[in-house]
């Protein structure tokens, strides 16, 4: 019987569903979304490439700057920690999906 009361109480409440594509959900300030490399500051020290668990971040030997393959990134923020000039940071953007795999590479 206690269950019935709980259920009816919940029916009268506003639904907990987040209607995602119509209404964007709130994301905290700390959320690790898109990874951004500030290539002005990047010195091409290869530390991020060595430490990356999945090999998502690679330093291009031509211009000595780091590029990220978002399709491989696991958002662990280790590259941001090891970077000596702190040129890697995360934004709040969480819609990173693309139908084209090539678009995700080199960001």
């Amino acid at each position: 019987m206690g269950m019935t009361i709980t259920v009816i109480k919940n029916m009268l409440k506003k639904p907990a569903t987040i209607k995602y594509p119509k209404k964007k959900s709130d994301i905290s300030k700390n959320y690790r979304g898109r990874i951004v490399v500030d290539r002005e500051k990047c010195i091409g020290c290869y530390l991020c490439q060595i430490h990356c668990p999945t090999g998502a971040i690679v330093v291009d030997p031509k211009d000595k700057k780091a590029y990220v393959d978002i399709g491989r990134c696991i958002f662990c923020s280790l590259c941001a920690e090891v970077c000596p000039v702190k040129c890697i940071h995360f934004t709040n953007e969480y819609e990173k999906v693309s139908k084209d795999k090539e678009k995700l590479k080199r960001q």
């Binding site: 994301i27 700390n30 959320y31 690790r32 958002f75 995360f90």
Partner: peptide
Amino acid sequence: FDELTGNRVHHS
């Protein structure tokens, strides 16, 4: 978790 660590599942 989102607020504390930045990731919801794998906190890192």
